[in-house]
Amino acid sequence: MAEQATDRLVRMLGILTYVERNGDTPFAELAEHFGVSVDQVRKDIDALWVASEPGDSWSPIDFSADDFDADVAALVRNDGVSQVRLSPREAVALVGALSTMGAAGALPEAGTQVLAKLRDALAEPVTVLGDDQVAPEIREALLEAIARYRLAEVEYVDAQDRRTTRTVDPHRLVVIDGHGYLECFCRRAQDYRVLRLDRIASVTVLDGAVEHPPTDTAGFTLTPAFRATVRIARTGRYALEDIPGVEIEDADEDVIATFDVADAAFVAGRLLAVAPHLRSVTPPRLVAELHRQAQSVLDVQR
């Protein structure tokens, strides 16, 4: 597909501003910096060069011809043309993503700096709320282990409240659905795992070296066991909206949610919280799990 005109325009203005700020620059460096070929850089500079003001042949941008022949961009004159500011959508995209990574506890130090610079330069384009409350010492210890290619011993509390101590080969911190996770190889499970950062209770950096390489296919690897359909009064809708891949449709005063279930105990636990609004649940095995948990609750809470 041919390049969009505006994409090229943005790169041309970028090259111009970069050379203005950094002085004479070899085409090769520009090519690397802007991710295009040297030949494309030459064409872009040529296009900047012939840009003209209305009516006459006065060109506001002038490069040195000798340097151009030597594949170096050397600016002789630039009469006020520069890179254009971020559009509202662009600003929200960047600030929104960086802030979400920050709230999830998975933003590198350089990210905090760039976010501060963007916020200084732009009117705050988006409000980002929420905080996973990842303890700084957990984050620091994980980053240290990752940077030094060391194993880490991690105390972890999973969504079903099972507490485990695992030795992992830590790889990177990743934001998934707005929450921060550690991508790692778990020695206990002998498989790749993502552990939610705010469920990690403690981290100890070990002496042993990382042996399992990062995988490209990390992320969630849960295999759905069955598909569930839940009919619930609209008031209870919120409890189902966050289930990954859920489809929700309106049905009079209710909504009907359909989604894949990997762990019936986990889903039943969620349904329990909105049980007064439930109209129907299928399949029966999910209802059975719901009943089992409800009975266990009533055995202790009266």
Binding site: V10, A93, R172, V174, V175
Partner: peptide, 26 residues
């Protein structure tokens, strides 16, 4: 939009070797 924004900001960025960070976003 995000890609275009980064292209715009590249004109304000120093040129250096590619930095690999142990972070990601899905």
């Amino acid at each position: 939009d995000a890609t275009q924004a980064v292209m715009k900001l590249a004109s304000s960025a120093e040129h250096g070797p590619r930095v690999e960070l142990p972070f990601a976003a899905l």
